[in-house]
């Protein structure tokens, strides 16, 4: 299922979307500023999340950038940057 984010979507709501996506893999409720590693995230979940982001948003995140970002809000910024650069 393709999820089409509206072009006007502000980073805030994108952050919320990413938080929900993480929740599917980490099996808990997540806010945009929660920390990936504190939530129990690891490389095996990271691989799945990065794949999904590529699929759903058409942005291939750098592995390093993803883990250094560490929160849904900052990953949302990376996606915005990725789209702007594309």
């Amino acid at each position: 299922m393709e999820r089409q984010a509206a072009p006007s979507s502000a980073p805030v709501s994108l952050g919320q979307e990413i938080a929900e996506l993480w929740g599917e893999f980490l099996h808990c409720r997540i806010g945009p500023d929660d920390d990936f590693f504190t939530l129990g995230g690891n490389s095996l979940t990271g691989i799945k999340i990065i794949d999904r982001v590529a699929q759903d948003y058409g942005v291939q995140l750098s592995v390093r950038d993803f883990y250094l970002a560490q929160t849904p809000a900052r990953v949302a910024e990376l996606i915005e940057q990725g789209r702007a650069g594309a």
Partner: peptide
């Protein structure tokens, strides 16, 4: 790289 957890995750992942 960043934090210990990030360093481990980056290296495992890659």
């Amino acid at each position: 790289q960043g934090s210990e957890a990030a360093t481990l995750a980056i290296s495992h992942h890659e």
